[in-house]
Design a protein around this nucleic acid. Structure first.
Lengths: 368, 368
DNA sequence: ATGAAAGCGCTAACAG
DNA sequence: CTGTTAGCGCTTTCAT
């Protein structure tokens, strides 16, 4: 069934049918009704490919993410889905492979499908990826990318806010020796977390001895290993901040094995607030990063870029905030434990303390 | 840049360019090389929309799932992604909304994009959904659907295998009173699990008193509530099988609160083997359902249906097996606890015991 | 083996 | 306000 056929049956021109379908205001209500009736009757659905071809607009947005098997991925996808739906776009999904050939193939698909905009939500490989789109006049939204170009919209994550809350929360509980278990060095987001930690510690004049900066790998195992290292230290820290939740879970598991009670003997803070965090034992205090907000910002930036054709030069930057979510894996240090009021005060000091927006939608492990 | 332009620059006809691109065998190698050179030089990418329009083949497969925010979803999507990539299809994703209007809109999108096949991987609403595709001559792959039609490929999940392993494993450990916490009644997959349990219990002549069949809702809270009910029973069961992992986690949490030790006082078995299962305390013994296998079967069925145009009548049924995964949430009953050898023997009796294929890719909560 | 030409289904001038 | 018409970029006979 084609538009032509509808035109014939409704005894109007194809133009009128087209106008009716697209809700053009200049079409006689009587005719419009007649057309719609025929469309309804025969079960006609316009062909998007023909439409895309002639209009030059595919109404498809590309979404490239590191791994669909990542904890935050569902939230990102769901958000994109909803927004696309709302704005009448389709989304073309692709995972960013480590292999060059696969990456090129993915890029090819995006281009061949004539996506009108692209969101790259990954913490590695984005630079190489974006490079492959050189010369495509395609708006791209990406996390914290330098240098931004005219078509490059940037979504930046403010790790510092949440980390500051975490550090000050711990300090208020009496912790002075706070360790950090980092993520893999190659992830720029992990690096950003480390820097945020260092800066926030400095803000309140806390030192970070070399041996309290332990490299992790954002995995359960790396967290376990890191805690073994930390536990063997001559002067053990009383709290540890982890670069993601999975690491924190590993830390808690190893702590348990070593007979260390969390939080009594060791306060643990995670990062991301994925699904596991709230179900951990004890439930994990963590720096929440809202992937919904991130996806939202990326989509909006893209949409704006696609709909306007003018503002090509305004390289937008949308900043997403992180926040501490208080649960049960942190508490007073031993020397403060007798001071009953202190714990309450400390909890209050963690300014933006709140449960995440949609706890039940959170997911596990990883982080962008 | 268009195919025409390439033809001009390579001084050949558009037909030759088309043939070259599509790897037709009847094109002179010299010409082909010349064409490819131009294509490479100018960075030409064929337009899939034009291609789809003229060829009548979109090379798009639809995938509809209940909620992208579901634990098993990433595995399904990833599997589809990989396979699509491999076979040069794109996938059009849509979540199955509870609202009628949204559902219709999703169906419309699928049809307008001219998807060549559709996988519906959901445990509710599929019948209504499929109904909306009536008269579309579109191959559809769906979970256990009755009645199967000529274009309806069915993927069925054999819950009984895994449940049998679970029940016999528990029986071997000395458990005679085994409770079941069901899922929501509206989910046909949950109902199937319940039936499998009843049948497997009957197989080994174990009774299921009315009060050992407790309705749950596949949520943490429902698991907690269900255990409260069970714990209050005059004659408490020594083991409980849950309709999904989330329920089992809730059971374990409430058990902990009630001072019941899992597995010593109560053996707990989950269902699905999602991400949480292995990280639970204690790690959860569970009936694993491989969503990778399910997605794989659905895709393959679809592909076959799309590529052949003949076998429209062969309504395939691919059966996916479930298996028990042994972890630490089950053990001997009190009366057997003194018999040292028994536990080993029991573990051996659970025939197909093994760790899941890719533990680290599993996800949390829910179940199809 | 290659080219010329006819559309695929739709939109958007343009003319009326 | 409506209709006519010219393509959008590609594949595919059908000749040659």
């Amino acid at each position: 069934m084609t538009l032509q056929e509808i035109a014939k049956r409704a005894s109007v021109s194809t133009a009128t049918v087209s106008r009716t379908i697209n809700g053009a205001p200049t079409v006689d209500p009587t005719l419009a009704r007649r057309v719609r009736k025929v469309i309804e009757a025969v079960g006609y659905y316009p062909n998007t490919h023909a439409r895309a071809l002639v209009s030059g607009r595919s109404r498809i947005l590309g979404l490239m993410v590191s791994e669909t098997v990542e904890p935050f991925f569902p939230q990102i996808l769901q958000t994109f889905e909803n927004l696309s739906f709302e704005h009448n776009y389709e989304i073309l999904l692709s995972s960013i492979s480590r292999e060059r050939r696969q990456m090129e193939a993915a890029v090819r698909r995006m281009i061949e499908c004539r996506v009108e905009g692209l969101a790259v939500l990954s913490s590695e490989k984005e630079t190489a990826l974006i490079e492959l789109f050189r010369g495509q006049t395609l708006p791209i939204a990406v996390l914290d990318h330098e240098p931004p170009g005219p078509l490059l919209k940037t979504v930046s994550i403010d790790y510092k806010h949440g980390v500051r809350e975490a550090v000050q929360h711990l300090a208020a509980l009496g912790h002075a020796r706070i360790a950090l278990i980092t993520g893999p060095a190659r992830l720029k987001t992990a690096a950003a977390r480390t820097i945020a930690f260092q800066e926030c510690m400095k803000e309140i004049d806390l030192e970070i001895p070399r041996d309290l900066l332990v490299e992790g790998g954002h995995t359960l195992e790396s967290g376990m290993k890191a805690l073994s290292v930390i536990a063997a230290l001559p002067e053990r820290p009383s709290a540890v901040l982890c670069s993601n939740d999975m690491t924190a879970i590993g830390v808690m598991r190893r702590a348990f094995e070593l007979g260390l009670n969390v939080p009594r003997d060791l306060s643990v803070v995670g990062f991301d607030d994925n699904h596991l965090a709230q179900f951990a034992t004890p439930p994990l205090t963590t720096v929440q990063v809202s992937y919904v907000d991130i996806a939202n910002a990326a989509f909006k930036a893209l949409l704006k870029s696609v709909e306007d054709r003018s503002n090509e030069s305004s390289r937008e930057v949308s900043a997403i905030q992180s926040n501490l979510v208080l649960r049960r894996s942190t508490t007073l240090t031993a020397r403060r434990v007798n001071d009953g009021a202190t714990v309450k005060r400390a909890y209050k000091q963690a300014a933006a303390v709140r449960e995440p927006k949609s706890d039940s939608e959170s997911r596990s492990s990883g982080g962008l």
